[in-house]
Design a protein around this nucleic acid. Structure first.
Lengths: 213, 213
DNA sequence: TAGATTGTTAATCGATTAACAATC
DNA sequence: TAGATTGTTAATCGATTAACAATC
């Protein structure tokens, strides 16, 4: 069943999923759309609409059954289908993402890390080994990996990208501040940290001097 | 001059800014809206509209002057106004963000890190020191910090949040997968990594077996 | 039951795209 | 100049919100 789910809905569904996980940790069995909406500060009819989209029926008295709804989201978003990925760049960010066990629950399966610094080679983090970048083409080919998570310094981002593309990588999750040039059939997702940050401080008074009467 | 810039535009403007920074690194003096649009795979009239919003006038023959446009974005988005922040959680992710020098250029000024693990205390990363969480209330108050970047484990996310709120923190950039409950006057930005990731693999064939004919 | 809840349609709002005259 | 480019309006598209009958 291939549902047509927009990016916006996708993002909210994962947030609902986080809430449901929290509910389970606190033994909450049912949750209503206004409750979910309040936590995320969105409209409650939006929650209902999103859930209607993945064809989940709530209970008109209690709201939604936590376990069931969680399972429904997981199957609609296909968390159980593993998507293999390599992390490129074994710095702090690379290691942080390699340690992030939560990814597995969402179907992202990090197999290994790559770096060109010899001091990093063979380090094992969370059961994932660091290989030299020269080993990349061979391993991408053998393991048929399509996703790369890019955490190298800005300066080398484009040249590493060119290498990734030449090996057959089709999806690049870009954590660097560089904008990458790639062929038509390769997709880049910019994890625009700075942009996100501005979203919640711009137009607010989080600055040092909030004079400006 | 307070412009009314939506989140969508804000996000694109920071991406344009990244492109302009790349241009400067490669000594490119002018760039056109179709060129910017191609790099981001968006519509070129959208680029022009965004730039009209921050009142930047292009050149009808060459396009936009890289240096000038960059400066215009910086002032429109007030990158020069420092916004002080603390990082809560001195794990890999906390350290990665502390090392991320790029933040300063965008007005995000990380002052220090906090953790409750005694082994981490007094470590200095990128000139930022790790303090024990018990020192937080005093320092938030003395330095009038309003922003916290939350990188603790999921399990402690809510209790640490309660502490942050009690000290007067008003903006929480949440890198944990927990959904935080906060009072009305506190804002949370969920850095929904998993949601972002699904955005670009969902509906695609990045999975292991792409049979399904 | 009464009151809270869902499911869904209609109304609104905002964002994106198309189109093109004016310009250098 | 000719051709590429901007600035801007109108048209389209999609996402959010309001409203409310039906339900348990």
């Amino acid at each position: 069943m291939q549902l047509n789910i927009s990016d916006k809905v996708l993002e909210r569904l994962t947030l609902y999923h986080c809430i449901l996980t929290d509910c389970i940790l606190h033994n909450v069995e049912f949750i209503s759309s206004p409750k979910i909406a309040n936590l995320l500060r969105i409209d409650d009819s939006q929650v209902r609409k999103d859930l209607a989209l993945i064809k989940y029926q709530g209970n008109k008295h209690n709201g939604y059954a936590v376990h069931e709804l969680k399972a429904t989201i997981e199957s609609a978003l296909r968390f159980e289908q593993p998507k293999d990925a390599f992390i490129i760049g074994a710095g702090n960010l690379g290691f942080a993402l390699a340690k992030y066990d939560n990814f597995v629950n969402y179907g992202l399966n990090v197999l290994a890390l790559f770096d060109n610094d010899n001091l990093k080679i063979d380090i094992v983090v969370n059961k994932k080994q660091v290989f030299h970048l020269t080993k990349l083409p061979n391993l991408v080919d053998r393991l048929q990996v399509k996703i790369a998570i890019l955490t190298v310094p800005r300066e080398t981002a484009q040249e590493v990208t060119d290498l990734l593309v030449s090996t057959g990588i089709k999806y690049i999750w870009n954590f660097t501040p560089a904008i990458l040039e790639v062929p038509e059939d390769v997709e880049v997702l910019n994890e625009n940290l700075v942009g996100n940050f501005l979203k919640f401080t711009y137009s607010h008074k989080a600055t040092k001097n909030h004079d400006k009467t």
